[in-house]
Design a protein around this nucleic acid. Sequence first.
DNA 1: CCTTCCCAACTTGTATACAAGTTAAAAGTT
DNA 2: AACTTTTAACTTGTATACAAGTTGGGAAGG
Lengths: 246, 246
Amino acid sequence: MGRRYNSPNEEGVASITDRSSGLGVQRKSNQIYEAIREDIVALRLVPGSMIYENELAEELRISRTPIREAIRLLVSEQLLEVLPQRGTRIAQISERKVSETRFIREQLELGAFRMAARLWDPVKHARVRETIIQLLQRQQEAVRAGEIALFLQLDEAFHYAIMEITGNATLLQVVYEMRGHLNRLRCLALQQFHHMDQVMEEHRALFAAVEQGDEALTAELLGRHLGKLDAELPELRAAYPQYFQE
Amino acid sequence: MGRRYNSPNEEGVASITDRSSGLGVQRKSNQIYEAIREDIVALRLVPGSMIYENELAEELRISRTPIREAIRLLVSEQLLEVLPQRGTRIAQISERKVSETRFIREQLELGAFRMAARLWDPVKHARVRETIIQLLQRQQEAVRAGEIALFLQLDEAFHYAIMEITGNATLLQVVYEMRGHLNRLRCLALQQFHHMDQVMEEHRALFAAVEQGDEALTAELLGRHLGKLDAELPELRAAYPQYFQE
DNA sequence: CCTTCCCAACTTGTATACAAGTTAAAAGTT
DNA sequence: AACTTTTAACTTGTATACAAGTTGGGAAGG
């Protein structure tokens, strides 16, 4: 392991999730949930390796109870796998799961982006426009600095910013869950192919299509943008076989 | 409350969920999760009413620990709402949540049904065909007997049977979660409008379109089939205001 | 040396004890 | 009578204790 979980969500990019009821106090288990999830999705926890409730409890100086709650949530997302009386395993990257979640993400993002293009109003969404342009700038800086993790977070933020136009919070939540199974692969892809510049171009084109209200173009660009992962997968699997399942 | 949870899943219609890791022993918390969920979704637990961990623990003769785990999962689905130090509330029906989950369900089912129509092979899916025909027959019997709860379960099973053709288990899981927020409304709709015969007709036509591999027709029929709920909502809200939020 | 068996050291699952916060009714005050 | 304060009975949140199952290494036997 070798990492403290003291300051979760320190990166300064707003998180969509908040699986707490939204109301009242931030419970310990929710902080732990986010911290562990982030470590899994960013590949800081090695797929296939084990974690143990006692170990985490000691490290965080709290009891097992809140840790167990966080683990159960991650199990329900299939990012963790509890082996009774043996420990808890970081899920390996599953080709099946990747293709299943990619399909879902594509269906939902296509629907949301189309709706966003349809709803786009230059006056009403002036602030949104500013936010997105700023995100693209920050992302460009991340490219220059070669910061993959930050790049990915801003990538996510870009997609959410556009989908937020639809006002469908549940859709964002579902896409967020699906992304949990895709981002690990994207981490590897960025390390392997260094194609961040191309992604940037696609984002700019996508945003332009939304701004112009061109629903068909938006859908086409997004389909291509999301489809890339399929072509990359075989090479990644060959390069990092130990992370994969089956 | 006034209901025992001794024999969960007694209805004989296979459940899709299994939020346990799939492996090994069925944990207590998973049985409780399913039992409570089913009670919420079938409106046996009144929206807006409270439940208490102690009460459930006493009733089921177990400790609070597994009950808490089940509750946390249902909170993450937004079917329950924990008010710290006050109790746990059965979520009311939220018009916003209904429209959000309906959009997601529509996007995903449309994609899955289209793919099913594309993949359909009379030889390869002979057994699936039998299963679906049998489901339709049992559903017709449920109509005759006026059993709304059973009708709804078979309705669900029909949709899943077709989507299973795609082999996308995660998609089924997501649709299952979305349905949690829609089924309560459908319960009310069936009580109010008694239009089960019409639903049956739509199912038969849908299946025929899939069998013929007619992707466009399938999509059109499904869109109409799922769209009904929107038209019904205002009247239902007027008839059962106490179940609704906002 | 190899195989078998047993057991101690781990794990998670469950129950229970305690901490902390909310609430509403009773008691006290004006 | 009306208002304020207190308090006891609840709730969930967290920590801890115990139960039950898995595992790997060493003792015992061949």
